[in-house]
């Protein structure tokens, strides 16, 4: 698949995630569409490609929005690598796959974010992260995860067919 197209999709996604999608919050929780795309890419594509896109997306997102650089990149790389290990055992067509991966990834994302934010000396209020907001975040992101995963799957399979014929 053409790398430029995917890099373009990831770049446009970051622009949208940091602008328009920030308006559509539910109780202060926002959509992490970059994380969703990295999950979809990691499920469908080869591990080396997934890591490359995770590195690019993480670094760009960190540079554009982060207070410090490396946090999103670290988590995206970890998730991309984790999915690539279990990639072959997954039922890619099942609707449960993106939902379960989405839930697990959000929990991993929040855990490592809190861990590093705390480790670097920033203030962390643990109570907030075990509140209703975490459930809202999981539910809100899971719905969109299903949508993005399905769209990316269709897009990927169509590109594969085009390459074959």
């Amino acid at each position: 698949m053409n790398r430029i197209i995917i890099l373009g999709i990831l770049t446009i996604n970051i622009i949208l995630q940091t602008t328009i999608l920030n308006i559509t919050t539910i109780n202060g929780t926002t959509l992490n569409t970059s994380l969703m795309l990295i999950i979809a890419i990691s499920v469908y594509m080869k591990p080396r490609e997934s890591l490359l896109y995770a590195l690019y997306t993480g670094l760009l997102l960190d540079t554009v929005t982060g207070v410090f650089i490396g946090l999103n990149t670290f988590i995206f790389l970890l998730i991309a690598y984790g999915i690539s290990i279990i990639q072959e055992e997954m039922v890619k067509e099942s609707y449960l796959t993106p939902i379960l991966l989405g839930i697990a990834s959000i929990l991993i994302y929040n855990f490592f974010s809190l861990f590093f934010v705390y480790l670097l000396g920033y203030t962390v209020r643990l109570a907030h992260y075990f509140s209703l907001n975490t459930f809202i975040e999981i539910g809100y992101n899971s719905v969109f995860m299903l949508l993005i995963y399905t769209l990316f799957g269709k897009f990927y399979n169509r590109r594969i067919k085009e390459v074959k014929y």
Partner: peptide
């Protein structure tokens, strides 16, 4: 633009 992270 806004940071979409809860902790900042």
């Amino acid at each position: 633009s806004k940071s979409n992270a809860d902790w900042f």
